[in-house]
Nucleic acid binder design. Sequence first.
DNA 1: TCAATATCATTTCGTTTGCAACGAACGAAA
DNA 2: TTTCGTTCGTTGCAAACGAAATGATATTGA
Lengths: 157, 157
Amino acid sequence: MKSFDLADYLPYRLAALSERISRRLALEYGQSHGLSMAEWRVLVHLSRHSEVSVGEICTYVNLEKPRVSRAVARLESAGLVNKYNAKDDHRLVAISLTDKGTDALKEIIAAALAYEKRLTAALTPKDMERLLEIAEKLHGVLDKDPLSMPRPEIDRN
Amino acid sequence: MKSFDLADYLPYRLAALSERISRRLALEYGQSHGLSMAEWRVLVHLSRHSEVSVGEICTYVNLEKPRVSRAVARLESAGLVNKYNAKDDHRLVAISLTDKGTDALKEIIAAALAYEKRLTAALTPKDMERLLEIAEKLHGVLDKDPLSMPRPEIDRN
DNA sequence: TCAATATCATTTCGTTTGCAACGAACGAAA
DNA sequence: TTTCGTTCGTTGCAAACGAAATGATATTGA
């Protein structure tokens, strides 16, 4: 039997690190505002785009459609977003932040940025540059692999 | 409102990359042998350790106890592992690979290593070294954060 | 020795997840 | 206009998930 150690396996290492970071980050928007990761990502997208559809949010925040749909529903009943029918195309939906959502997001973004700062403070600028460069190389491999899921729109270059 | 782009947010970037890799990898052990990620990790641990308990697997493969317990149950009914009561301490369970499990694992490990090779082929040795170094720095930040989950045993440098 | 406490694996229970099916609304072609 | 195929968002459903409860065994301390 070939020797195989999870601890040295790149996909595992990345997953473990990423999960550890994500779970810690989830406390920032979870404990303070009771949001899930999906809800947090939806809000973030809305901070930059208004009157957007569920589908657009999906491609941008890299989540499945049912998940975004349910996240939006919860955000709506929490009063953080508005949801209308799109004027021109009645299949689509037009989602926007409410004032309450805007206020909540302001706080959460501040917390999220502060948390990111704590992480990146341990890295040199060169580290950061290299990390993104390496990530790009790995994405490049997956891009050429037809069995891989498409690269998230947001993560192009 | 402060500008905030998910695309530039380190925790998101890591999560997106890691998930893309994990999902592609899952095809290797999923389509060929019908295994879940939890089952795959359990098998991997068993390739190096015999007569282990559920708890030990947990700390090593970084999964919650119910998840490992169920993974082991499925692996057992698939005939890939044996599960006895530990000789000395009857609360513990002693899990080992069967011959069938050993054979399956041999194939899966080969596929997993081949897949990893495709990824790392895009990286220089220096890249790899730097990536691990950066990961270590990020873990270091989390280690000092009491709100963060404990670092996976396996990932201690 | 015998409670009281701790540890281990499993199971229970409520929630979340994603695939697939669905109905509604659009666009194209006849 | 009508019909067919497509694209929306939502929902049904079964599987997976994790926190907490459970039951079984060990260990500790009186």
